[in-house]
Design a protein around this nucleic acid. Structure first.
Lengths: 211, 211
DNA sequence: TGGTGTGAACAACTTCACAGCG
DNA sequence: CGCTGTGAAGTTGTTCACACCA
């Protein structure tokens, strides 16, 4: 259980496993073997077993894994056995889509505060209940509402400055939707959700194929 | 220039490089060294040089890379020296945000057809001009409009079936926003944009840190 | 018997370090 | 002299193959 040497990819896969297990659970399937789980996630069966083995011995030899139990363990590992308080910065089309995204609250991710720079938007109340704060209130609100994760949905031009403010306000983790590589100090985490990079990958492969 | 052994991560980084180079170009910076470019992308300088070396010798020893020239080459490699015809399936909040996303057309990615399953939406015209087609028209429209990339923004429950229809209609590449691992046959490509997986990564690291 | 858990083999990717060239 | 291009070394992640155990 040496955390430091766990591959980042393992964590990503745990997330996939948990999703599949949720589905199995609601289909009333109680036991699953690494082969089946692997297939559903598009990975190698040995990979599944190794990923899980980093954190303990959750399976039963000759049988497989108990779905409910394994799901519980994975959620505990990922920190999904609790809720997470998030702030959203940038209430454009994407921001609104994120607020409306039903998977977030289902997994315990809650937007407890939202911000925008546009004075015309500040003060308005969203259908989901939150009042839009101005960026100048960011520090105060983040601290007051004990926000742990910042979600940046601003234009690229404002993303870096926004990240700075979030970090200064005490946020440790950022989910960045802006198409820019954000620079952050040691000890903080950024995950990027980058549509165009993904599209560029597709374009590349389509281009290669045609050659 | 053996395409088969180019790391997937290299392609992703090329996409980042192109973005940074665009920015440099509009700042009228003509030459950049691998150190600087690497720093802006958060990678190792040797990595930058190696990535580029897969595709040719674009630099000048003792000098660096000419921004304009390098950008041109990278865009050619990625297939960004042309436009790409895309279809969007699922006109919910996320779908609308994608349509409004200004970076897509800027990079040559165009939504030339949009689809939804909801009869109340079918036939309506979007502000961006497209008329919403029903899913039953998918095969016909995809072929007629020569669509190359399918973008899935449906609920998870419909994503697999949608992928199937796209592939049957001749689409080779899919950008999937639904939180599910889509199964596709050999020779097709899927890229997943997965918000919750990214959030789970953040939650994991925050949880670890606290231990 | 059948599927997990795991060391050992393998494969992939990254970084180093320096030769080579403008 | 300075920065690229690149073999070689190092690191990280994946797959194999089988001992082990319910």
């Amino acid at each position: 259980m040496k955390f430091s040497k766990i591959p980042a990819a393992t964590i990503t896969r745990l997330s996939l496993y948990s999703r599949v297990l949720e589905e199995l659970l609601s289909s009333h399937i109680n036991i699953i073997a690494s082969d089946k789980l692997a297939q559903k996630c598009g990975v190698n069966p040995a990979q599944v077993r190794k990923d899980l083995a980093y954190f303990g011995e959750f399976g039963v030899r000759g049988v497989g894994y108990f779905v409910k139990e394994l799901l519980f363990e994975i959620k505990k590992i990922l920190g999904l056995n609790r809720s997470w308080r998030m702030a959203l910065i940038g209430i454009g089309n994407l921001g609104l889509a994120l607020i409306a995204h039903e998977n977030f609250p289902k997994q315990g991710y809650e937007f407890v505060a939202v911000f925008d720079i546009d004075p015309k938007k500040v003060g308005r109340r969203l259908p989901s209940g939150q009042i839009i704060h101005g960026i100048d209130e960011l520090d105060e609100v983040i601290k007051e509402k004990k926000i742990e994760i910042g979600v940046i949905a601003t234009p690229a031009s404002q993303a870096q400055a926004t990240a700075r403010r979030l970090i200064d306000a005490g946020v440790k983790a950022i989910l960045n939707f802006a198409p820019i590589q954000i620079q952050i100090p040691e000890g903080f985490i950024v995950e990027n959700v980058d549509f165009t990079v993904k599209l560029d990958n597709l374009a590349y492969h389509l281009t290669m194929e045609a050659v």
